[in-house]
Design a protein around this nucleic acid. Structure first.
Length: 489
RNA sequence: GCUGAUAUAGUGUAGUGGCCAAUCAUGCCGGCCUUUCACGCCGGCGACCCGGGUUCGAAUCCCGAUAUCAGCACCA
């Protein structure tokens, strides 16, 4: 079979709406990157950016992509998140090479901490946290900064032996106490935490802080490039000290700007609070920006991916636009979405003067070969209440014209489509009263109750387009009733 | 307060000194197609934050102002 290469190219052009991201340096032999979230809940749109961007380059250049679970703060671990994140990544189509749990690596961090102390790159600080902070802001070193390596090592082993209580001691990286940026001055690298047991390692009570464990792992795993949010920009500067102490090569770092989403709670803790308070039904509540909420609404991973790559990794702060995501999603789902009638806020209408007949409505107008839906007319139909203005002429789509004569009555007004056109009659969706299936359409602003075609009962889990309403994901079908989530127009 | 970053149409994005009276997508408006307010097609609307400077020439480089954001945690 001969294929026209040009035609294939065009097909791709239409499908791939997102642009190419700029090249990465030192990528000739592949890249090693990672997605390293804190397992505190399921993934949301913000995580999508981090994971998709990194994944994009690993797919582009080849190499490895680690999902590294940054569970070094037991206070911020939701055990359920371990599994949820994996599910979400799978849904998003992220190609994970390996999964690393930082909570499996405490001994490694301890070893490198000892090394760092030995080479004078870190010290064990027993100062009060607030006092240290005040000194730091005034560029004054704390007394612990000058203790000997031997004493530091002793304090370190004492810490591991449990001789210090929570908050009594901190491993600090020796940077430059008068560094112009107060954020980098002798930052903390390890601490004791006994109040919250770690879900995976209940016996551990000495925990590394992110800036320490991240450097150790990034180096050990051979990370070549790191793309992360600009909230880490100061961390990169801090981490540079550790790289330099060990003489390690730094990966290339990129920091993208902040992304806000209009009217949407994006922090995991905020969402959790809302769920606990009953404000949201769960992690997949339609009002949330979690990937599972988007999935439930009928947003496809390809659309999230395209929208994310379209945004790119610029360091400008941006406001995420639902419009752009919906446009991407529409491009993905339209061709696969069969068309059906959904009559919201339905009224039963007797139509006088019409013969019993059958309507043939195309399942997908642009592709007649997909077939028709057969809708029988026997005198009574369901119509959207909003269309029922007395005296108005309506065209029942794929059937005939009527004239509204009362709240529940209408009369036959001919078959001519041309008449309907010339009198500017609205072409409306309708249902035979006897074959209407109750259907609740959940929209962000509320639930629209109505009826849909019986065939929709067979679409559980799929997306249809309710004509004149919009795309909808059939969430559940039970007891002959349809629950649908409105996706977008 | 200190440190750093950013500033192109409603939104997102391209553009790294002349080819930019500025790209693409989305949005909006108009038209075509159509028994959906979908898809598709055609046309249109709409932007270089402000002020200096460098240069023959700046959206692109420099300085300043303003605004926004991030960090200054025993979070990530």
């Amino acid at each position: 079979m001969a294929l026209d290469p040009e035609a294939i190219g065009k097909m791709h052009e239409k499908k791939e709406r997102s642009h190419e991201l700029p090249d990465l340096p030192d990528s000739e032999n592949g890249v090693i990157m990672r997605f390293a979230p804190n397992p505190s809940g399921p993934l949301h749109l913000g995580h999508a950016r981090a994971s998709v961007l990194n994944d994009y380059y690993v797919k582009k250049y080849g190499g490895k992509f680690y999902y590294r679970v940054e569970d070094t703060d037991p206070k911020r671990v939701d055990p359920a998140a371990y599994e949820m994140v994996i599910e979400d990544l799978k849904w998003l189509g992220i190609g994970i090479t390996d999964v690393i749990y930082q909570s499996d690596r405490f001994e490694i961090y301890y070893d490198y901490a000892r090394e760092l102390i030995k080479i004078g790159g870190a010290y064990m600080c027993t100062c009060d946290n607030n006092e240290f902070r005040e000194k730091k802001l005034k560029k004054i070193p704390c007394p612990c900064r000058d203790i000997s390596v031997e004493e530091n090592l002793k304090r370190f082993e004492d810490m591991l032996a449990g001789k210090y209580a929570e908050g009594e001691i901190t491993l600090r990286i020796k940077t430059d106490i008068s560094h112009p940026d107060p954020a980098v001055r002798d930052f903390a690298a390890m601490r004791v935490l006994t109040s919250t047991p770690h879900p995976r390692k209940p016996g551990v009570f000495v925990f590394p802080l992110m800036n320490f464990s991240v450097v150790i792992d990034d180096h050990l795993l051979g990370m070549t490039h790191v793309i992360r949010g600009k909230d880490h920009i100061a961390n990169t500067r801090r981490q540079e000290y550790i790289y330099n102490y060990f003489g390690w090569k730094m990966p290339h770092f990129y920091h993208y700007g902040r992304m806000s989403i209009a009217g949407l709670e994006l922090s995991t803790s905020g969402m959790r609070k809302g769920i606990n308070e009953g404000l949201y039904t769960g992690w997949d509540d339609i009002h949330l920006g979690t990937l599972r909420a988007l999935a439930r609404r009928g947003i496809q991973p390809e659309a999230v991916r395209a929208a994310t790559i379209d945004i790119g990794m610029g360091d400008t702060d941006i406001s995420f636009s639902w419009e752009n995501l919906f446009a991407q999603n529409k491009a993905v789902i339209d061709a696969g979405a069969d068309r059906y009638f959904f009559v919201p806020d339905a009224v039963e209408v007797d139509i006088a003067g019409a013969q019993n007949t059958q309507a043939h409505a195309p399942i997908y107008p642009n592709q007649p070969e997909r077939g028709d839906r057969l809708l029988s007319f026997t005198g009574k139909v369901l119509l959207p209440k909003a269309e029922m203005e007395i005296g108005r002429m309506l065209r029942l789509k794929d059937l005939f014209n009527i004239k509204v004569t009362g709240v529940n009555t209408a009369e036959y007004a001919g078959n001519s489509l041309a008449d309907a056109r010339s009198s500017k009659a609205a072409i409306v969706q309708w249902l035979p009263a006897e074959m209407a299936v109750p259907c609740s359409l959940l929209m962000p602003e509320g639930i629209s109750e109505g009826f849909c075609e019986p065939a929709v009962l067979g679409y559980a889990g799929k997306i249809v387009q309710f004509e004149r309403i919009g795309f909808s994901k059939i969430d559940a079908v039970k007891d002959g009733k349809v629950i649908a989530y409105f996706t977008h127009r």
